[in-house]
Nucleic acid binder design. Structure first.
Lengths: 105, 105
DNA sequence: CGTATAGTTGGATGCATGTCAAACAGTTAG
DNA sequence: CTAACTGTTTGACATGCATCCAACTATACG
């Protein structure tokens, strides 16, 4: 099991998080992670409508912004929401975004 | 008094709002509007550290995303937060962002 | 009318981003 | 070992964006 570089909780920047969440594809991924917990990249990226390399790019954005955790296990990579870290740093932010993301168009 | 085009409340898109809030300059402007209410563009743009045309660009981003209201009066333009509209559409979002924006680095 | 004020617009520039395709790398299975 | 699987990296491309400067518009003031 290998860990990838992630920003420390106190280094998570609000503007970076907001930018990470401001893409429809990434918002969809975050919604899935919130609903289902830890998933592999392929599961999270299923039916996203983008190429797998594009999805990989989005995972990196989310990780570098401090929104998700990644850990490699064998040939699979598991990603999960850093919910506690985000709640500690920006209380209520993630919940309001997730609620808003479920709203009807 | 002239009104400029703004998106209707139900047309405000979450990703657009998040993108609008993901810039440090715009976040600063929104914080000022939240603290002081309606202000002119020059007041809101005071000491932002950017050229007035850059500030004007940011106001347009915020307006088109549905974050602020603009109304022209004479040669001054007043901008204000669309707090009620944002609260109605995305409950808790604006408050959590404003709270987060006040956090120490 | 002429001048000052408040903002916008257009051009230019450099940087970031979203996307795909193809090649690559690491891991597991037969 | 060979082949399949999982995901990343690189290149290419188009787009968008933050920024400044200069010119412009519109309004107000003398």
């Amino acid at each position: 099991m290998r860990l990838l570089p992630h920003p420390a909780t106190e280094d998570i920047q609000l503007t970076e998080v907001l930018k990470a969440l401001s893409d429809p594809v990434r918002l969809l991924v975050v919604g899935r992670l919130a609903a289902h917990g830890e998933m592999t990249c392929s599961t999270a990226g299923d039916d996203l409508g983008v190429h797998k390399s594009t999805a990989s790019h989005h995972y990196r954005m989310l990780r570098e912004a401090g929104v998700i955790m990644s850990k490699q296990e064998g040939r699979k990579k598991y990603i999960s929401l850093r919910r506690d870290d985000l709640d500690a740093r920006f209380p209520g932010l993630l919940d309001s975004v997730l609620t808003a993301a479920h709203e009807p168009v």
